[in-house]
Design a protein around this nucleic acid. Structure first.
Lengths: 234, 234
DNA sequence: GTCGTACCTTGGTAAGACCAATATATTTAG
DNA sequence: CTAAATATATTGGTCTTACCAAGGTACGAC
């Protein structure tokens, strides 16, 4: 028998996804909602916290639980609990991404909306803007880089895939950050990453699936190569 | 000021990742741990549940919270709560597999060992053997089919990828079975699936990466198409 | 030594309470 | 009448206590 908590999480998800239910964009007060659902406030909180960890809502103290719009790429949930995994998985991680992200990019090229495209362009523009900035450039750039990849996955319009990628991303968050940081620290890299990302977004803009696949493959394969170099040196 | 709960999550993460602390691979009972950390059991539960939602631990009723080893990170933990309407679920699932499995097959072709190859051949032979058998043929065949796909992923020799696939598979096990059953019930299917699998294993045997990618793509894309047909009818 | 039975452990759930800070309503000063 | 000051209600954050059910353990009966 399924745990009541898990059932609650699912129930709340359905309610969240039906815009007519919580039309004001936030959940009712915990006490009210718990009473309405016939569960204790404690159990309801556990379900709500699960939804927050999964990135569906945003809980603000003394204000309520705000539903995140589905077209909102808010990485705060996954970035929140950065972890340090032991061992050296950077290469495996990048290799895995090299295998799965290119075909996803191809699908994204076919299904992206205009709005998603414009948000991708924003990411590229921001990447261009931070290029050359000293110090803070790397970490800021990494965020936009991360967001771009996430946007591409979302644009593929497969909810399972999105959850899979988000799960991978939140779990490996720290490692992904490390690899991004390492790469962005290379002098030759920022310019290269920018042109590769441009090519990717251009292909997606043209609804050129094959081009998007190839652009993403190029980008990640270059990253993998560089990581292998770095790993060989140090 | 950060919420106490979030701080707790981080504290627990660090403890989990230091193997010396919970050397038995599981967290202490909630009551003990709460007392040791100086927080209430309820708050500790909220933190533990967050960790479960993020895929770091596995909570089993009356048994405890078991730590997942870093190389066993279950990226698909969040898929447990992915929401969709049942009809599209199977299609989304197959579509996801169509996107990610072909490139993996290509990698497998390059890295497979002789032993892995022979086990793949066994699967194909078994599939051929059960073909034509009435009734039980479908469910038996599904097992060999499942094993073949798993073997291919393992042959790609990327532990992260293997975990990703295994996690996805165990989470979606039920639904994967349903789609397999639906497809194997079609008269035209068993023969087709056999020839497609043969082509896949042949390409892997020849270390023909492009051929393996294409064979896997063909196979899954055919499956997706059929599923769409079935979905359209009923 | 084997088998039951009682007991203990442990996660799941409920209920009630208090805190602190915010939002809102009310009162008061100008 | 306006606006600042204040009182009140709201709401998430946290703690405490309690009970349940099922799995594990220990101990006694035979």
């Amino acid at each position: 028998m399924e745990k009541k908590r898990e059932e609650l999480v699912r129930t709340l998800q359905k309610m969240i996804l039906a815009p007519s239910i919580f039309s004001d964009g936030k959940l009712p007060p915990e006490r009210d909602l718990a009473a309405a659902l016939g569960v204790s406030r404690g159990l309801l909180r556990e379900a709500i916290i699960t939804l927050e960890a999964l990135g569906y809502i945003d809980i603000r103290e003394r204000q309520g639980a705000f539903i995140k719009a589905p077209d909102q790429a808010d990485f705060s949930a996954s970035m929140k609990y950065a972890v340090f995994w032991p061992g050296d998985l950077l290469i495996n991680l990048m290799e895995m991404r090299l295998l799965i992200e290119p075909p996803i990019a191809g699908q994204a090229a076919l299904r992206r909306t205009e709005e998603e495209l414009s948000r991708m362009k924003t990411c590229v523009a921001q990447l261009a803007a931070v290029q050359g900035l000293p110090d803070s450039g790397a970490s800021t750039g990494a965020q936009w880089d991360s967001m771009l990849h996430m946007l591409v996955v979302e644009a593929a319009k497969n909810p399972l895939l999105t959850r899979l990628y988000e799960g991978m991303h939140s779990t490996m968050d720290n490692y992904i950050s490390i690899s991004r940081f390492k790469l962005l620290a290379l002098e030759s890299w920022p310019g290269r990453i920018l042109s590769e990302h441009s090519a990717l977004v251009d292909a997606i803009a043209d609804r050129n699936a094959a081009g998007a696949v190839e652009a993403q493959r190029r980008h990640l394969s270059g990253a993998l190569e560089k990581l292998r170099d770095l790993s060989g040196e140090g």
